[in-house]
Simulated scan of single mutants.
Amino acid sequence: MQSNERDIKLAELASTFGLDIQENPVSGGLYEPVTIDGKSLYLSGQIPKVGDAVVHSGKVGQDVSMDDAKNAAALCALRAAIVLKHSLGSLAAVEKILRINVFVQGVDGFSQQTQVADGASELLHNLFGEVAGHARTAVGVAGLPRNAAVELDMIAVRKR
């Protein structure tokens, strides 16, 4: 995928989720949305928010369906991509998505975290192509900030 195509694709995907790519997701506390060390970018956790509203909240398997949970994971990944764009000026500067961690707030006994995380992986592949071939961890948790159903963090590498 050509570099400029990534920024165009980001804008298209963002509009389908109701996100404005001009708005850089900000931290909700005393931390940075991204820390850059050399070529490595460490992104703080993103929850499925549009504006200030959490779109999918509650426990997957009780309050949130599997389809909505996958959508929440995709929204988290999209918000992380927006942070990358704001940090680097363009997604053309992204060399590789190294790793994502996906946290899923599920009901007791919920074991489909990897299927939920597929929503994020699919969005990243759609946006970045081969560059999105990442390592991944998907885990279940008892709770997440603002009762979000899903949270995602990321490590990416920028081009020199």
Rank of each mutant, 00 (worst) to 15 (best):
L13C: 13
A11I: 09
H56P: 01
E130H: 11
Q112C: 14
D63N: 14
E23C: 14
Q115G: 04
D20V: 08
I97G: 13
L123G: 01
P48W: 05
L152A: 00
D153F: 06
S65K: 00
A14M: 08
S3F: 13
D108H: 10
D118N: 14
A74R: 06
V157S: 14
G140S: 09
L124C: 10
S57G: 11
V141C: 07
L127Y: 08
Q112F: 14
L98K: 14
Q105R: 03
E122L: 12
D7N: 11
L98S: 15
I21A: 10
G29F: 02
R160E: 10
D108G: 10
F128R: 12
V64T: 04
A77N: 08
A135M: 14
A77R: 00
N71K: 11
A132P: 01
L127S: 00
A53W: 07
K39W: 09
L88C: 01
H56Y: 11
R158I: 02
E95L: 06
L127N: 09
P145L: 06
S44G: 06
N4I: 15
A81T: 06
G119I: 02
N4Y: 10
I100E: 02
Y42G: 10
Q2L: 15
H134D: 07
A81M: 07
V34W: 04
D68K: 02
R160T: 11
V54M: 05
F17L: 04
A53P: 00
P145F: 09
Q62E: 12
E130Y: 05
D153G: 03
F103I: 05
P33K: 11
A93T: 05
L123P: 07
I47H: 01
L123S: 04
E151T: 00
Q113I: 06
A81G: 04
L91I: 02
A138C: 00
T114F: 15
T16Y: 13
G133H: 14
